[in-house]
């Protein structure tokens, strides 16, 4: 239920603008990897490159090689929808489908992939909502609109929707930046729980969060605006936050820069 992600020399472009340059890293199964760095350094671009959401934007393309358990994600013969089913994504702002109920939101991905049987959908909905620590809060109102929940609940609903498809990898793009501290903590607890089943990569601006939840941390940075973002240092979280190798990393995590 969890796979290894390997990037080697990944550069992503928006038209002629190079957003990230030559990113190489390996993410082991069933770990949490945090990507930190100042705004505009390409963390989210890299994340969106992993599940091929980058190419949704017009003129966006990538170079380099990205594999999931040694299969090339960008192989021309690979079905892009299969990649996205395998590598799920949770976004910065909670984005439940506004026209759907809580239940419909959770099973939306399954329905998209042709699951029709009510009993299967019911089971998946309950299981996913329980995994997302949301079941007890919503079990009595599954038919209410998903957008009526609080921000933190909506984000957990989105996580439930993502894991309902049973992906191998879950990407999280600043999942807590729109949430209050209590909801943030709920999501962090959830991440620990999900680590047993999924490979998790999380982009965060919150360094305490990175230090709390992740096994490994990658620090991205740019030299100046207009330059592509680079991976400065990638190591065990413990090491990054106590004894980083690079001066830039140290400056960033101690607050002297960025």
């Amino acid at each position: 239920m969890a796979k290894r992600i390997e990037a080697s020399g990944v550069s992503s472009y928006y038209g002629s603008f190079k957003a990230i340059d030559g990113i190489s890293m390996t993410v082991e199964p069933k770990t949490i990897t945090a990507l930190i760095g100042p705004s505009g350094c390409g963390k989210s671009t890299f994340l969106r490159s992993i599940n091929r959401m980058h190419e949704v934007l017009p003129n966006a393309r990538i170079e380099g090689r990205l594999t999931i358990d040694d299969q090339n994600i960008y192989d021309p013969d690979v079905d892009v929808t299969a990649v996205r089913r395998m590598i799920g994504m949770v976004f910065q702002r909670p984005n439940p489908f506004p026209t759907m109920s809580i239940y419909e939101n959770v099973v939306a991905g399954l329905k998209l992939n042709g699951v029709k049987k009510k009993s299967v959908l019911d089971d998946a909905a309950e299981k996913s909502l329980k995994s997302a620590n949301l079941w007890d809060e919503v079990k009595d109102r599954l038919n209410r609109p998903g957008a009526g929940l609080s921000g933190g609940q909506q984000q957990r609903l989105c996580i439930a929707r993502t894991i309902a498809v049973e992906p191998q990898v879950v990407l999280m793009d600043e999942p807590c930046s729109a949430l209050d501290p209590i909801s943030t903590l709920a999501i962090e607890d959830l991440m620990f729980k999900l680590k047993d089943r999924f490979t998790i990569i999380i982009v965060t601006h919150n360094m305490q969060q990175a230090a709390r939840v992740s096994d490994k941390t990658g620090f991205f940075s740019i030299d100046k605006t207009g330059e592509p973002g680079r991976l400065i240092e990638y190591d065990d979280t413990q090491k990054i936050f106590s004894n980083p190798t690079e001066k830039k990393t140290e400056d960033y995590i101690t607050g002297r820069f960025g």
Binding site: M53, A82, R84, R85, G88, P96, F97, G109, R161, T162
Partner: peptide, 8 residues
């Protein structure tokens, strides 16, 4: 984006 990321 949410729909696409679910494999739509």
């Amino acid at each position: 984006d949410a729909a696409l990321a679910l494999g739509a």
